[in-house]
Structure formats: C-alpha cells, structure tokens
C-alpha cells in the first residue's frame, strides 16, 4: 500500500539520485521544469523508476499533464490504488 507520504518520500530520494536535486527542494509545489530543471528526457528515466515502485505498467500519457511534484504524487497514488482495487475484486465477489 502506497500513501501519498510514502510516494513523496520515494520521489525525494529517487529524484535527488537521478537528477542531482536537493531532497529539500522536492516539495509538492515544486514545478518539475521551472524549479527542478527536469525535462522530457529526464521524465522517461523517472517513469522507469516509478514503474519499479508501483510494479505496474505506466502509460506515459497519464503523465502528460503533470507539472508539479504534487501532480506526480497524485498520478502515482491513483495508479497504485487502481491496482490495489483490482487485486481485491475477486475477493469481494
């Protein structure tokens, strides 16, 4: 189970490792391009890492409208929980 807090913590460590940004700068309001200097090429590497976290195939188009760290957290949160719900379905029925 991924909470928003755990996703943000993961982003902090991953993004500082991948993109040489300070962990303290990775906050929900930070804009990826303007504040953190993360471009579309970097996004590809980030999505690979997010795949490792959620263990789920990620459709890049879901990240097309992502602008801030908060947006990434939301997108990953939705994705992760979508997965959880699907796993529980057979149990419920």
């Amino acid at each position: 189970m991924h909470t928003r807090e755990s996703i943000l913590a993961y982003l902090k460590s991953t993004m500082s490792e991948l993109f040489e940004v300070a962990q303290d700068d990775v906050v929900l309001e930070a804009r990826l391009y303007e504040d953190l200097d993360i471009d579309s090429i970097d996004a590809v590497d980030l999505i690979v890492k997010l795949k490792e976290l959620t263990d789920k195939k990620i459709q890049p188009y879901k990240f097309r409208n992502v602008r801030t760290v908060g947006d990434v957290v939301e997108a990953v949160y939705e994705l992760a929980n979508e997965q959880e719900e699907k796993k529980q379905e057979p149990v419920d029925s």
């Binding site: 090429i41 970097d42 590809v44």
Partner: peptide
C-alpha cells in the same frame, strides 16, 4: 548509465 545522467 541513464540518459538523464549522461546529458548532465
């Protein structure tokens, strides 16, 4: 290595 790192 990753492109994001190499390009930096």
């Amino acid at each position: 290595s990753r492109q994001s790192k190499m390009s930096r």
